[in-house]
């Protein structure tokens, strides 16, 4: 690691004031710390959000499930509030990494990092969640902006994710057996007559929606409805783990499983 200044602010306001000149936020650290150890990131300062207790809250707020940005994957996966408000969502963090990673990694960190193989971005996009920051509220459709990129400003901090209730939601993931990242993960949400399908792990530009599947599922929310809808392999990642055609096929398989699992 290269040297950096370390800050441990007690409030979001103080944290925001420290975000300048190449400073980075530290949430659960499961991506940032390995990246710094490999010297792929060299922030001038690290602003640790770990002491801001208000960022860990998980609560039902009217018609929304609001999850604090610093809630860990294990906390969300095991939350009774999540299980009763949006039961399908608990399975998303429950499938990330391994138990020790889940005890450290956070929802805010995952969403802000926007790794193209991360699980949460698919859930956030499919559920049409709202990203609440220290400055504004951003609809999921406008938030993700390509590989490891979001519309967050340099001194903007995600404080919570707000998931509207009343959706049937399912997530199915084919995990890379070594890294546990999604080789392909598909999130499916049905709300009234609207269906949203979001795919992670596959797109060479990060998480994306599949309009053809959404239209077919809006007519009939069953696995059979998308049997004949083939995902387009153009624009998908090809690497040593899976080529684009394989990933395209997996999108269909995982989408069906997600519909089947939807609750």
């Amino acid at each position: 690691m290269y040297a950096f200044d370390y800050h441990r602010p007690a409030t979001v306001h103080d944290a925001q004031g420290l975000l300048k000149d190449g400073a980075k936020l530290l949430a659960g650290g499961q991506t940032l710390i390995p990246t710094m150890k490999q010297r792929l990131a060299s922030p001038s300062a690290v602003v640790d959000l770990g002491a801001i207790g208000e960022l860990r809250k998980i609560e039902q707020n009217g018609n929304a499930l609001v999850i604090g940005a610093m809630a860990t994957h294990a906390e969300v996966a095991g939350s009774k509030t999540v299980m009763s408000a949006l039961p399908g969502l608990a399975g998303v963090p429950g499938a990330i990494g391994d138990p020790h990673v889940r005890n450290s990694g956070t929802i805010g960190g995952s969403v802000a990092n926007n790794d193209p193989a991360a699980d949460y971005p698919a859930a956030v996009l499919a559920l049409g969640a709202t990203v609440i920051t220290s400055k504004r509220q951003i609809a999921a459709d406008n938030f993700f902006d390509g590989l490891f990129t979001t519309v967050l400003g340099e001194d903007e901090i995600i404080t919570a994710l707000s998931f509207p209730l009343g959706a049937k939601f399912g997530y199915a993931k084919f995990a890379n057996p070594a890294s546990r990242y999604a080789l392909v993960g598909v999130a499916v949400a049905q709300r009234g007559s609207e269906v949203r399908v979001a795919v992670t792990g596959a797109g060479s530009n990060g998480v994306f929606r599949v309009p053809a599947m959404e239209a077919a599922l809006a007519k009939s929310f069953t696995p059979a409805a998308i049997t004949s809808v083939k995902a387009d392999a153009s624009g998908l990642m090809s690497d040593i783990h899976a080529d684009a055609a394989y990933r395209a096929n997996l999108i269909g398989v995982m989408a069906k499983r997600a519909v089947e699992a939807a609750a």
Binding site: Y6, G29, Q30, I33, A74, H100, V101
Partner: peptide, 15 residues
């Protein structure tokens, strides 16, 4: 009380 990987945590974060 929770298991974590101590190679992926800063000592200062454990204040």
């Amino acid at each position: 009380g929770r298991a974590i990987k101590s190679c992926t945590a800063l000592a200062l974060s454990c204040e």
